[in-house]
Amino acid sequence: MTLTLTVPPGAKVRVRITNENGETTEIEVEPGETVTITLPAGSTVRVEVEVVDPDGRKRTETFTLKP
Rank of each mutant, 00 (worst) to 15 (best):
P8G: 13
G32I: 15
G56F: 00
T2K: 08
R14G: 08
V7G: 01
V13K: 01
V52P: 00
P31C: 14
N19L: 07
E26L: 04
E28Q: 11
G42E: 10
L5H: 02
V47R: 00
A41V: 06
I37R: 14
V45Y: 14
T6H: 10
G56I: 00
S43F: 12
V13E: 01
I37L: 10
N19A: 09
T34L: 14
T18A: 05
E48K: 02
I27C: 09
V51A: 01
V29N: 14
T60L: 05
L3N: 02
F63W: 05
V49Q: 00
G22H: 10
T38Y: 08
V35Y: 14
E50H: 03
V47G: 07
T24S: 05
V29I: 05
I17F: 14
G42M: 12
V15L: 09
D53A: 03
T4S: 06
A11K: 01
T4W: 14
N19W: 13
G56T: 00
V45R: 06
K66N: 13
T64M: 09
L3A: 04
P8K: 11
V29H: 08
T64R: 00
A11Q: 01
G42I: 12
K58A: 03
D53T: 10
R57A: 02
R59W: 15
M1W: 14
A11V: 01
T25E: 07
P31L: 15
T38G: 09
V7T: 04
M1F: 14
R16C: 04
G42Y: 11
R57V: 07
E48H: 02
R57W: 02
T34D: 08
T36N: 08
E26W: 06
V15P: 00
A11F: 02
E28D: 11
T34N: 11
N21G: 09
V7Y: 15
T4Q: 05
G42F: 12
V47Q: 00
T60G: 00
V35N: 06
E61H: 15
L39T: 07
T4M: 11
D55A: 02
R57K: 09
V35E: 03
E20M: 05
T34R: 13
R14N: 06
M1G: 05
N19V: 14
L39A: 13
N21L: 06
V51H: 04
T34K: 12
I17C: 11
V35W: 14
I27G: 12
P31F: 09
R16M: 04
R16G: 05
N21A: 08
E26D: 06
L5G: 04
K58Q: 02
L65I: 14
L3Q: 01
R57M: 03
V52W: 07
T38Q: 07
E33Y: 11
T62V: 13
P40A: 09
D55R: 01
P8C: 14
G22V: 09
L39S: 09
V47K: 00
V13H: 00
F63Y: 05
E61V: 15
A41Y: 13
P31D: 11
F63T: 15
P54L: 06
T24E: 07
E61W: 15
A11L: 00
G32K: 13
F63D: 15
T34V: 14
V13R: 01
T24D: 07
P31A: 06
M1R: 03
P8A: 12
E48M: 04
T44Q: 04
R57I: 04
V47A: 02
T18V: 13
V15W: 07
T60A: 00
I37E: 12
R57H: 03
A41R: 12
A41F: 12
F63C: 15
P31V: 14
E33F: 12
P9H: 08
T64P: 15
E30W: 04
E50T: 10
G10L: 11
T34M: 11
P9A: 09
P31M: 10
G32L: 07
V45I: 07
V15G: 04
T25Y: 10
T25P: 08
E48A: 03
V52S: 03
G10D: 04
P9Y: 08
R16K: 04
P9S: 07
T34P: 12
P54H: 05
L5F: 11
